[in-house]
Simulated scan of single mutants.
Amino acid sequence: MNKAVLKAVLRKNKWFAGLPPSLADSILRLGRIRNADDSLIYSASDSRDGVIALVSGQVRLTSFSLSGNPSFLLISSPGSWIGVTSALDGRPYGYDAFAIGKAVLFHVSQERFEALINESNEYYSAFVRMVCDHLRVSMQNLIILRNRRPLHRLAQELQRLSERHGRQTKKGLVIDLRLSQEDLAVMIGVGRQTINRLLKSLEQDGIATTRYASVTIHDLKAIERLSSSEEAES
């Protein structure tokens, strides 16, 4: 892959875009392109193997409860980095990463990653800042999950997915990520009956419709209004 194209994709991530040029160039020099096609990139129990950035396609990040049910689900978009926490602390990943369809990955091996962060405290601190960014986002999502109504949480997730993965068609903005109703339920922290009720409500209001493994948003303005609502869950 052309280095300029790769750099442009990685700069979609604010963290990478804000790196010192010397560090950004070193990352580009040390990494290698990998391809995945409907395959497991790593499992929750795997040992660390460096850091990975998504160049194209989608990656599903999932963790499971002791009963085997999914308890967390996130879809990564191009420019996103995964595996950083494990690369730094040496522990297993803690979640599965699975490529949805064809995905292009940029992989910096553990050996090269450690050599890089050992070059200077500035380089090490840069990756710590990435973990801090991830933690802040996680905390914000937890606050939203605990305090906002399920319909507003669903609208926010649909807005996020539409911005990163939406495809404009004559019928509306299509989010085609092989997401089932159960997947959406896990993403916003509700049960199967609740997500079914919420999706039917959006469909009755002409805002969005669901089909097998896809969602079509017909009224993005309505989704944005619901997403920005401050109404708390009683």
Results as ranks from 00 to 15, higher is better:
residue 1 M to T: 15
residue 3 K to V: 10
residue 7 K to S: 13
residue 7 K to V: 07
residue 9 V to A: 03
residue 10 L to R: 02
residue 10 L to T: 01
residue 10 L to A: 03
residue 11 R to C: 09
residue 12 K to E: 15
residue 13 N to A: 04
residue 14 K to A: 12
residue 14 K to G: 12
residue 19 L to F: 10
residue 20 P to W: 13
residue 21 P to K: 13
residue 21 P to E: 14
residue 25 D to S: 11
residue 26 S to A: 14
residue 28 L to M: 15
residue 28 L to E: 10
residue 29 R to K: 13
residue 30 L to D: 03
residue 32 R to V: 11
residue 33 I to E: 15
residue 34 R to T: 04
residue 37 D to H: 14
residue 39 S to T: 15
residue 39 S to E: 12
residue 40 L to I: 12
residue 49 D to Q: 10
residue 50 G to A: 06
residue 50 G to C: 05
residue 50 G to H: 05
residue 53 A to C: 07
residue 53 A to P: 00
residue 55 V to H: 00
residue 58 Q to D: 04
residue 59 V to P: 01
residue 64 F to Q: 07
residue 64 F to T: 02
residue 66 L to V: 13
residue 69 N to P: 00
residue 70 P to G: 07
residue 74 L to N: 05
residue 81 W to Q: 01
residue 83 G to K: 06
residue 83 G to C: 06
residue 85 T to C: 05
residue 88 L to V: 08
residue 88 L to R: 04
residue 93 Y to K: 05
residue 94 G to C: 01
residue 99 A to F: 06
residue 100 I to Q: 08
residue 102 K to N: 07
residue 102 K to L: 11
residue 107 H to A: 03
residue 107 H to C: 04
residue 107 H to M: 05
residue 109 S to C: 09
residue 109 S to F: 10
residue 110 Q to A: 09
residue 113 F to Q: 06
residue 116 L to G: 00
residue 120 S to W: 05
residue 123 Y to Q: 10
residue 124 Y to L: 13
residue 125 S to H: 10
residue 126 A to T: 01
residue 127 F to N: 00
residue 130 M to C: 14
residue 130 M to K: 13
residue 134 H to M: 14
residue 137 V to H: 12
residue 138 S to M: 07
residue 139 M to C: 07
residue 139 M to A: 08
residue 140 Q to C: 05
residue 140 Q to V: 14
residue 140 Q to T: 07
residue 142 L to R: 10
residue 142 L to C: 13
residue 145 L to H: 11
residue 148 R to A: 05
residue 149 R to S: 09
residue 151 L to C: 10
residue 153 R to V: 09
residue 154 L to S: 00
residue 155 A to G: 02
residue 160 R to Y: 10
residue 164 R to P: 02
residue 164 R to E: 12
residue 164 R to Y: 11
residue 165 H to V: 06
residue 167 R to H: 12
residue 170 K to H: 11
residue 172 G to T: 07
residue 178 R to M: 14
residue 179 L to N: 05
residue 180 S to F: 07
residue 180 S to I: 08
residue 185 A to R: 04
residue 190 V to Q: 02
residue 195 I to P: 00
residue 201 S to A: 14
residue 207 I to T: 03
residue 207 I to H: 00
residue 210 T to V: 10
residue 212 Y to P: 09
residue 214 S to I: 03
residue 218 H to E: 06
residue 219 D to M: 06
residue 221 K to N: 12
residue 222 A to N: 09
residue 223 I to H: 02
residue 223 I to Y: 01
residue 225 R to E: 14
residue 230 E to S: 13
residue 231 E to T: 12
residue 234 S to K: 15
residue 234 S to Y: 12
residue 234 S to V: 14
